Computed example of a mutant assay.
Amino acid sequence: MDRLKEAIRRQGTVQSGKVLQLDAILNHQVDPELIMEMGEEFARLYRESGVTKVVTIESSGIPIGFAAAYKLGVPMVFARRKKTLTTDNDSYCERVPSFTKGIVTDLMISKKLLSSKDRVLIIDDIIANGDAVRGVIRILEQAGCTLVGLGIAVEKAFEKGAPALREAGVRLDSLVRVASVDGSEVRFTD
């Protein structure tokens, strides 16, 4: 997706060699028009897959997940990272390490929101090691859902997450694939 690549070149910053900060694009501020284009692209890729729900991860996956769900005409569910007073105690929960935060967090989805009849498309903003996505996949397995695929806005192709998921047989579509980050330069594949 050329428009996303251009936004990353203009507004993304590289921190500590491997961390690509996209606060001005995906993680703190969003361009609604770009987000809706991303949602449309994921809808185009998965329209024929019989998706009944889009699942994403709090918080940066929410805008893209919403856009894809809207374009597909299905509900969106997001995995919460923090338990609140209103969090359903009857929830699926998985512990996952966070690549960018450097901590272990919980992912929770209420059991009322998933069923064995659901055909789920997972949407996320960035994949590096893939730990958070694997946590969501484990939740979907517990719920008996069918995973139709994984839509990623930005794939760090130089990290192990996406290749490992593809090798495990998961359909994974990325809008852009980052080949490397060197100093302040971001290089894309394709």
Rank of each mutant, 00 (worst) to 15 (best):
G144P: 01
G169E: 06
A164R: 06
V77K: 10
S59E: 02
V54A: 05
S98A: 12
K117I: 06
I64P: 01
V120E: 07
D125C: 13
S59C: 09
A67I: 09
S116N: 11
P63S: 09
F78K: 13
L107M: 06
V104S: 11
V133I: 15
D125T: 07
E40W: 08
V154Q: 03
R166E: 05
M108H: 03
G39L: 08
G73I: 04
G151R: 00
A68V: 05
T86I: 15
E155R: 05
F99W: 08
L172G: 04
A128Q: 10
L150K: 00
L72T: 13
T86E: 14
V96L: 03
I139Y: 03
K111W: 10
V170I: 14
S98Q: 05
S91G: 03
G149N: 08
R134H: 06
A128R: 11
I64E: 13
E40H: 12
Y46R: 00
F42Y: 05
A168L: 08
D106M: 08
E48R: 10
I126R: 08
G151C: 07
I152D: 00
Q142L: 07
K83C: 15
G61T: 09
L72E: 10
I137E: 00
N89D: 14
K83Y: 09
T105P: 04
G151E: 07
R44I: 02
S115K: 02
D88V: 13
L114I: 12
L107G: 04
S59L: 09
D124H: 06
K117N: 14
T105E: 12
V51R: 04
A132S: 12
K112W: 06
L107D: 05
G50N: 06
F42P: 07
A68G: 12
L85C: 13
S49I: 08
S116V: 11
V51Q: 02
K101N: 06
A168D: 14
S110E: 09
N129F: 07
I62N: 03
L107I: 11
R119Q: 12
V170K: 01
A162G: 07
L150D: 00
I126C: 08
I109F: 01
I103C: 04
S110G: 12
L72C: 09
S116R: 14
A164Y: 00
